[in-house]
């Protein structure tokens, strides 16, 4: 699968502008992941995990700074881009903890999630590095961060085995299924987002024009400035309108 996507990755990472934008996005995701881990460290009662989560969070914050600094260096003089493109989900960065509700997570499932998330990131970053021969600085950034992600994979797995003892495999499978579910949610949301935009845009152009005409006429009657509120305004009503 990875080799099939290689030409696509190459295309995505070829343009300095897109490279800059993606690195800045990765910086945000890493920072977000760092905050999730800080939250996990604040909530856990296990002192070893608290220290590990904090150290991991610091790594993520450092990665965020590195991605950001490289992204800014690549993007000097380029105007910022608004909105997302298709390439954003074809070539993801680390997905943080997949919008996990840290507070509601069992320690074992949280560690399983971290392990899988870091594995995926390490794999992806290795792929990106392989198509970045033309940009040694960005390539070495991915190599460096990729190595960190491997450390994160290892510690999370070791801790998962400690915390869940015999149940770690089951937790990993459960986490894989949940990641699949979340992937479905992302895909479904993306498709539905497109469908809804198309449907509402059709409604907009088919249904709205006569109403828009009336609204524009009505607007002309309105005076600028203050609107005096009637003394009998029913401010006590508690109604929705």
């Amino acid at each position: 699968m990875a080799s099939l996507l290689r030409p696509l990755y190459w295309t995505i990472w070829a343009s300095p502008r897109r490279r800059a934008q993606k690195l800045l996005q990765f910086a945000e995701v890493e920072a977000e992941g760092g905050r999730d881990l800080v939250r996990a460290s604040e909530l856990t009662v296990d002192p070893v995990l608290r220290r590990l989560f904090l150290a991991h969070a610091r790594d993520e914050e450092r990665h965020a700074r590195m991605f950001r600094s490289r992204g800014l260096a690549l993007g000097v003089g380029m105007p910022p881009r608004a909105g997302n493109t298709m390439f954003d989900w074809i070539s993801p960065g680390e997905r943080g903890l997949d919008d996990l509700r840290i507070k509601d997570e069992h320690l074992g499932s949280l560690l399983a999630f971290i392990h899988l998330s870091e594995s995926a990131a390490a794999r992806d970053f290795a792929e990106y590095s392989s198509v970045l021969g033309h940009d040694p600085l960005t390539r070495s950034l991915f190599d460096h961060i990729g190595r960190d992600e491997e450390h994160h994979m290892r510690y999370s797995l070791a801790q998962l085995r400690r915390v869940a003892s015999g149940g770690s495999r089951a937790l990993l499978w459960k986490a894989r299924l949940r990641r699949l579910w979340k992937a479905y949610l992302r895909l479904a949301s993306a498709i539905a987002g497109i469908m809804s935009t198309v449907l509402l845009t059709i409604q907009y152009f088919v249904l709205l024009p006569p109403f828009a005409l009336l609204a524009k006429f009505a607007m002309r009657r309105e005076q600028p400035g203050w609107t005096v509120l009637p003394p009998a305004l029913d401010s006590k009503s508690g109604r929705e309108f």
């Binding site: 509402l200 845009t201 907009y204 152009f205 828009a212 524009k216």
Partner: peptide
């Protein structure tokens, strides 16, 4: 949305 038709076509959905 109605008042700024058709410029509001992106924001309406």
């Amino acid at each position: 949305s109605l008042r700024s038709f058709p410029h509001s076509w992106r924001s309406f959905p």
